[in-house]
Simulated assay, not measured.
Amino acid sequence: MKKDIEQFIDKFKKFNLSKEDLDTVISNVKIMEFKKGDDVIINKNSCQGFIYVLKGNLRAYAISATGKEITVFNLNSGDECLLCANCITDNLQLELNLQANKDTKILLLHSSYFSVLKDKYPSIASFVVELLSIRLASAIKVMAQALFTPITQRIIDFLKQNVTNNQIQITHEILASHLGTAREVVSRILKDMEKENLIKLERGKIIILNL
């Protein structure tokens, strides 16, 4: 636990915080753990603050009025999350959910502390803008792909980006959620790809043959 917190504190040392403020961070940072499939943050208003991912993976996704999901970005080990924190701005009307894609451990600094630091240190305010830009660029890319890239190509791109040892542990339903489409559409395209010997389908698994 001490090593985890030290890793988090190293992130803040570059902002040249006063000893008092650094002690405040040390005293108030929390370690939180989630199992695969756990919902981490329900929406913007329930977000508690600045997140740093120690290990695992978090999927940030939006839900449409019809209940369809689409992945906006992923957070891996070493990534920070501010877009899901209400400490950025009260006027940012985004509702994103966070879900653990695998067993995940994060460090969290409550927004009441992080907001004070952001207002006090210009370097932290600049850091917030930089991270916000990265997340918005990712969101714009995802939306552009959803609008202009054929779903077959989006599935191929997703498989290539997430393959490990020539396979991906994923269901058709979860894959559809990542891409913001229907499970039936994903299943049909995957079966066509299997007929073309591009992939092999197994229960909860996709084996990559020739993509």
Rank of each mutant, 00 (worst) to 15 (best):
Y113A: 02
N57C: 15
I106V: 15
A176M: 09
K102R: 13
D90V: 00
V72H: 05
Y113I: 13
D90M: 00
H178L: 12
G180C: 03
T152S: 03
S112Q: 05
V163W: 01
S111F: 04
L175H: 05
D103P: 14
L75G: 08
G67M: 05
Q153I: 10
S126A: 07
A60I: 06
Q93G: 15
I156D: 06
G67S: 05
N91A: 08
L75M: 14
I88N: 03
E130A: 13
K160E: 06
T89S: 10
S177L: 11
Q93M: 15
I88A: 01
S126E: 07
N162H: 12
Q93S: 15
I170P: 03
T152Q: 04
S46M: 07
I140E: 09
Q48R: 09
K141E: 14
L132M: 13
I140W: 04
G67T: 03
E95C: 13
H110E: 14
L58R: 11
F114W: 01
C84E: 12
N97K: 14
L179T: 00
F148N: 11
S77F: 06
H110F: 07
V116L: 01
S177I: 05
E130I: 12
G180D: 02
I106R: 12
S64P: 08
N76V: 00
S77W: 06
T104N: 13
A125S: 14
I134L: 15
F114S: 02
Q167H: 08
V72A: 15
N45D: 13
L159I: 12
N91R: 01
S126T: 11
I155Y: 04
L131T: 05
T149P: 13
K141F: 11
G67H: 08
A137Y: 04
I70K: 10
F50E: 09
N91F: 09
C87P: 00
Q99V: 13
A137V: 08
R135Y: 05
G56S: 11
K120T: 13
T104Y: 10
L75T: 02
V163S: 02
T66L: 15
A176H: 09
A125C: 10
E95K: 10
F127K: 11
D119A: 10
I155P: 03
K55M: 08
T164D: 08
N76P: 01
A62T: 00
